[in-house]
Design a binder for these strands. Sequence first.
DNA 1: CTGAAAGCGCTTACAG
DNA 2: CTGAAAGCGCTTACAG
Lengths: 348, 348
Amino acid sequence: MPADRPSPTPRHRATGRVTLKEVSLAAGVSTSTASRALRGERAVAPELIERVQAAAQRLAYVPDPAARALASRHSDHVAVLLPLLSNALFVDLLEAAQNTLRAQGYQTLMGVTHYDRQQEEQLLRELLLHRPAGLLITGRDHSPASLELMANSRVPCVHLMDLADSSGPTPGYSVGFDQAQAGAEMTGFLLRKGHRRVAFAAAQLDARVMQRMSGWRSALQAAGVYDPTLEWLNPAASSLALGGQMFEQIVQQRPAVDAIFFCNDDLAQGALLAALRRGIRVPGQVAIVGFNDLTGSDQSLPPLTTVRTPRARIGEAAAQMLLGLIKGQAPEQPQLDLGFELIERGSA
Amino acid sequence: MPADRPSPTPRHRATGRVTLKEVSLAAGVSTSTASRALRGERAVAPELIERVQAAAQRLAYVPDPAARALASRHSDHVAVLLPLLSNALFVDLLEAAQNTLRAQGYQTLMGVTHYDRQQEEQLLRELLLHRPAGLLITGRDHSPASLELMANSRVPCVHLMDLADSSGPTPGYSVGFDQAQAGAEMTGFLLRKGHRRVAFAAAQLDARVMQRMSGWRSALQAAGVYDPTLEWLNPAASSLALGGQMFEQIVQQRPAVDAIFFCNDDLAQGALLAALRRGIRVPGQVAIVGFNDLTGSDQSLPPLTTVRTPRARIGEAAAQMLLGLIKGQAPEQPQLDLGFELIERGSA
DNA sequence: CTGAAAGCGCTTACAG
DNA sequence: CTGAAAGCGCTTACAG
């Protein structure tokens, strides 16, 4: 055995972490083979795979994400674009998606668009620079430039919440539920309860809210009781306070309204509080329903009748679908409908 | 001029993006100089800086984050560790920090610890692999292994919410406010209102909650009305429903209690709803106060008296401090106290 | 102040 | 099935 020769001083900085080269040396294979073995690429002898894995284990080797991204042109990042973080709906979506992605070794890069197509575009530009392995994006309403960015990037993409692209020839991939149907079912429930003057009150007015409204409209039309003056649309952000204001406006201007369908639970919760303050009986005088089954809706006075939306399951399923796409597997259902559930509590 | 020689077919894949080499060619400098000029490193002739920047602009050059991370051993990621996303407090913190970081070109890598030191440790391990440029972490209560990971990584770190490390010799950096003082001030407010049997009701029981409690205790002791049996601690997660339950327990078991200090607004909001259900007058029969000034606290019946905590400002200031540390600037105030504000509304 | 060159730690054609 | 080598796109000692 040769004595230790003085190794030439390395000219450069080392990071101190265990590298693939050390693993391959320990396993007695080339770095190419070590790389292939570790990534589970077929075409490596089972015996070598074992040796490499053992060495990696022993040395506590962890691949360097930056080096991998640079060489493979794909990072282990997944970009997730959401409209807002102030709505628990999207936080639930994010957390579920992130958990699923993280379990497979992917890091979430989150972007908040504030319902602004310009901001979405800008975020897309920034995030795509990181060569994400995949993209999760809320809704299907994007600027032409955003669509082009997504297409050009060739990064697999799954849309959240909205099922189909109403326009556009390529439906792409999505996980969500039928918003219009949910709106129609809730309205049908109110009709069956005997209500005839059913108002629809909405804020934020994103695409999904409008789909809910179209469901409300068609249900009322089918029943022959549709009144277009019972639409209350406010583009402002949804909040308890706004719900209270809208409620007071509606009961004041249209005292004959016998039920109000709020497009989101926070509005409905605010309405319930306003009713309490003004001594208006719910549902006796006017029924109130919401949408999403957010925190606190089971605690309100009276407890809120609403539509429970499966956002955690949507986040998880979308992440799962994306993971498949990243591996090149086409999902058996490109548009995955996870449904919804009407929760009848005391307010209607 | 030599005619175009047939360039040898490149042996490998190119990413299609504009590289530093193209910029340096266009500017007529070496890549070293281009690199230095673009990063604003001094020791580059002003004229060259201009030429390089112009070329970069013209070619729409954007540095490759992966290559930069690999070469420099620092990514443009900042890891942000939070206990929960289901508490709006932390979402506000996250959003403010992320906005500040993003404006400087940093990407946020978020981790949710669920108040679990094991999970925190695991997340730290994963995130540190990405060689983040910096770390934002909630609280000061970490496992020894976590502390070691942080120290060994030599990644600059700022703690959120908690100011000083009660134990430990190295105070490090933090942005927050004095939780104990906030607890004491709120309690002082109740005492001044004439309350003498002031209960403290808490869930989650993280370090900050316990600090609030110690403030409550010392204020009562100073007034000579401290009663240790008026502490109601529940390790479960904080929620409206739990607040209602705790409220009912307290008024039932200790009917003489004249004020309840809930450690978080969601508990207090739940208590208010429970009082409404049971016809208990607030604050007539019992006063109720909360902490944090969360969404809806101004809408409750009666509106909730609480402590407004500057979490958005904390997130922003912490990010700002971290940005400074990354550049090697020591903050003038390593422990930045952003204070709090008592908001008197109707519930006490 | 500037540049040539080595190196960061991987992946992946290419040849065998 | 395996390995030597080139390359991903930057940064940074080193020498001038």
